[in-house]
Structures are given as structure tokens and as C-alpha cells.
Design a protein around this nucleic acid. Sequence first.
DNA 1: TAATTATTTAACTAATAAGTTAAATAATCA
DNA 2: TGATTATTTAACTTATTAGTTAAATAATTA
Lengths: 111, 111
Amino acid sequence: MSADKVFEALSSASRRRILAFLSKTDMTAGEIAQRFADVMSAPAISKHLSLLEAAGLVWREKRGQSVHYGLKEDALTGTLVHFLGEVCPRSRPFRKESAEAARRKKGSSTT
Amino acid sequence: MSADKVFEALSSASRRRILAFLSKTDMTAGEIAQRFADVMSAPAISKHLSLLEAAGLVWREKRGQSVHYGLKEDALTGTLVHFLGEVCPRSRPFRKESAEAARRKKGSSTT
DNA sequence: TAATTATTTAACTAATAAGTTAAATAATCA
DNA sequence: TGATTATTTAACTTATTAGTTAAATAATTA
């Protein structure tokens, strides 16, 4: 679950697309492979999923014949937010976004 | 300034260290090279800086003999926050971090 | 102008990555 | 058991990356 592995995993547009696809719901390897069949073979998807799992960004669970994969949102956001904290401790846009998120969360009580 | 180039740029631990080093203040290519001299040559640093600039993560300005580089925080946070929004629209840790950031910003008025 | 300093470019090497197809493994079902 | 389905592993190819040293470029100064 090192930052190295996370950023390595995120460096591929294919893997980022897989993560985005998983954001809606978890899915089997076959479903994911089918979704990207126009662009990549099933073994290629399988390798991407292994790498994503090694980076700690997805979980994997075998159920019967299929293997289900799901996003580990906390690992992803944790790493990126931590990195942002290191590199831009006082970034304006991040704080802006943060303030918005906090506002949405609380309703308009802080407005 | 594509997300592709940003994630590509961030995939290297060396480049992430350069970014973190630039977070304190901007610096000349020579100063940066000196900082990492134990681990990498000046031409290697120069290539990393070019790549970071191509990704839109740093600016470059020639002043006299030297070339100064500085972090473009907004580009970095913008890309990562946008990506998080796509992949984990309702991530808990991000919101938690967001709430903290908002709190720090406002003082303890919301506590 | 010649020498020095700062940085980048060129040419190269070694390692790694992303994809391929074919074969192996594992679970289910007739 | 044998066939089918789902997924992964193996073996391989091609392209890219990160680094190297040596040479080129550009600005400054003696």
C-alpha cells in the first residue's frame, strides 16, 4: 500500500479507467474485461487488476467461478490527499474544494 | 496540462521528490540538481524538470544564466481533486480531510 | 576574445511496461 | 467423467523510461 505503488498504478490511463468503472459498483473480472473488450484482451485486464490490487486500490474476492473486484476508495483518496498535503500544504484550490465539501456535508449552516 | 501527462509525471518517485522540494520555494535547476546530486546527475534532473513542465506542474523562467523553476500548485491539486471526484465522488476520507481543512481555515468557529 | 559557469541536448544502455496469443487452472454442470 | 465457463499465468514482442557520460549552447566575467 506504498505511495510508490499507488502512483505507479495510477500512471496508466487504462487502469484509471478501470478504477472509474469500478466507482459505480464492484464487478467480476469478466464484466470488466467485457467493458474494455474493444480496447484490450482479458489477460491484459487481469494484469491491470492484479497491479491495482497490489497497490491496495482494489479488493478481490472469489465467489464460485468468478472473481469480484471492488474499489478501495479510502486507500486512493488517502494517498492522494496525503501527497497533496506534502507537496502543496496550503493549496488554494484544494481548500476551496474542501470548503465546498464541508458545506455540502453540513447543509448551509456555515454559510 | 492533460491528466495523462500529470499522472505520468507523478509516477516517478524522483519527480515527486522534486515537486516536494519545490513546495518550499522556487529554485534554479542548479540548486535542485545539487540537492539530488547524491542520487542523480544534473542532466537527469533537467529531463525530469522538462517533463514536469510539459505536464504543467511547474513553471520555468530563465533569469540571466540560471533557469528558475517553481511549483504550479493549482494544476497539481486541480488534477488530483478532479480525478478523485470522478472515481470516488463520495469518499469519506476526502470529506474528512476537507472538513479539517475548512476548520483550520476558519479558526475554531465551527467547532 | 577567452574562460568559466549554468543548463540542456545527444547518443547510448539497461530495465520495465503494456500489450499479444496460447496454455494452464479452477469451478460448475450435463 | 468430460465439457464448458471464468480467470490467470507463461512466453514473447515492442516501445518507453530512467539513468549514464560527453558534447553543445548560452550567459557572464576577466
